[in-house]
Design a protein around this nucleic acid. Structure first.
Lengths: 104, 104
DNA sequence: GTATTACTTTAATAATTATTTAACAATAGA
DNA sequence: TCTATTGTTAAATAATTATTAAAGTAATAC
């Protein structure tokens, strides 16, 4: 994963409403949740929700699927895991710190 | 870990220079690296480096230790792991998705 | 004690990001 | 077709964040 993409992913999550949306969708799993449901649950205006899910979508952290009048959003677990992997990669220059003290 | 603290941690990492600083320190391990070395390596002005390490320190993602005229910075692995844990917590409502498809 | 090294702080400016309101689609149902 | 539902977009404003240059602090060396 490229560093610029990781910055985009982190920026997407680095906002209270968007972190709440993402966490909700992580717990929700693969089926995801309709935009309106998310907005209701998080007490966010539809326009504001649209703005934030757009940011998360552009960062690749969530995916979108239309079903009739409803738009379902779901967490992108592959993107999440890639981001987490980037942060911990080659920790402590690859020495056995994980085995010794579980620091990374 | 509280959600506001996670937002702070993510915000700290969500900037190219700061992500580069953090990654450098993650690879470096517990000993850390002096401010000047970091600035040289990343080709950042001292003032700008100071600004960014301050942000990372306030977010709890790195720690600071003075040694003579040098100030050493090191990654805070405990904070990093807490942040990663927050993001994946109760994924897919706790169903065995990890065992079934390694999605989270 | 003066100079040098290493780093931080302040202030000004530039750039980005979030929120709100209003207008705009698209689908579904009467 | 008319209307309600569901959601997005655009424009304006407010707020936050990053960068630079200059001044300031603190420790060591001469």
């Amino acid at each position: 994963m490229k560093s610029a993409q990781v910055v985009k992913a982190l920026s997407a999550l680095a906002q209270p409403t968007r972190l709440a949306i993402f966490r909700l969708l992580v717990v929700r799993g693969v089926d995801g949740m309709a935009a309106g449901q998310i907005a209701d649950k998080l007490k966010v205006s539809p326009a504001n929700l649209s703005f934030h899910v757009k940011t998360l979508t552009h960062a690749g952290m969530i995916s979108q699927r239309q079903d009739g009048r409803f738009v379902y959003y779901a967490a992108n677990f592959t993107a999440m895991n890639a981001m987490l992997a980037y942060l911990t990669e080659n920790c402590c220059a690859g020495t056995a710190c994980e085995l010794e003290n579980k620091q990374c």
